[in-house]
Design a protein around this nucleic acid. Sequence first.
DNA 1: GTCTATGTTTGCGG
DNA 2: TCCGCAAACATAGA
Length: 289
Amino acid sequence: MPELPEVETIARDLNAAGVAGKTLTGARVYWDRTIAEPSVTEFCRLIKKKKIAAVGRRGKFLVIDFTGGGHMLMHLRMSGRLHLVSSGAERLPHEHVVFAFEDGSELRFHDTRKFGRVYLMADVERVLGRLGPEPLDPMFTPRVLFEGMRKRSRLVKPLLLDQGFVAGLGNIYTDEALWEARIHPRRLSDSLSQKEAEALHAAIRKVLRRGMKNLGTSLGTGKANFYSVGRRRGRNRDALKVFRRTGEPCARCAAPVQRIIVGQRSTHICPKCQTLKGFKGSRDRGSEG
DNA sequence: GTCTATGTTTGCGG
DNA sequence: TCCGCAAACATAGA
């Protein structure tokens, strides 16, 4: 569920709520598999008396640094959320991990689908080191994108979703960026011209920045939907051009938006703006050409 | 009952 | 070795 803009929104909300500076008194775990490492017993033992120094983000990971060393990573996967409540609040269904602070407040990890994971580690490199560049970092230049695309022969969309290639893009922002750059998701990565790579680079940054400005994308009202801390919804949905807009007119050319499947993922394109015509080695299965 | 879902990992076969 | 694909994780909503 949450992609880079959503995780960033959560990190900012936690900071705005004054989480940095709080000291943990302990954690209670109600679904063991949410704790990726160490063991639940060790996790609960080690987390006591840890003081939060900072809350940040890397890719789709929320990164919590403790004073005097140690870090906690949280990955929300499909349906994870964070609730900041007072310790007296009744525990809701799906609140699988409860972190208690000295001041009587609690941070609760809520996750209906139970795919989310929490890590406690001395050195985050083993996990975060596998991530590709931050798309909004100056290190991520149009050339880095172009060369990275060129030295592989992958379908463009699955490559953008690969967190080891670039960190933080998910299904929503990838579809939006490809539409913005007018690139078909089934193009082969090494078939992109430098100009196309530049357009894609600009598009990625544009849709991510807009997503953050709008505090993330919330879709329906379902339980698996994005909510930031304090149950606030993002308002980026109206800014989406193709994602879950099947049949609606393309904002550029008015052709009806199509839904296709690419790399097992639901994918939304404008069949007129994003075409495969003229690219050898690309296949257009299931959608029109 | 059926299909779909904003994510990631693993194992298989080409 | 690289790549795409299917399945697995687990639950809710349409």
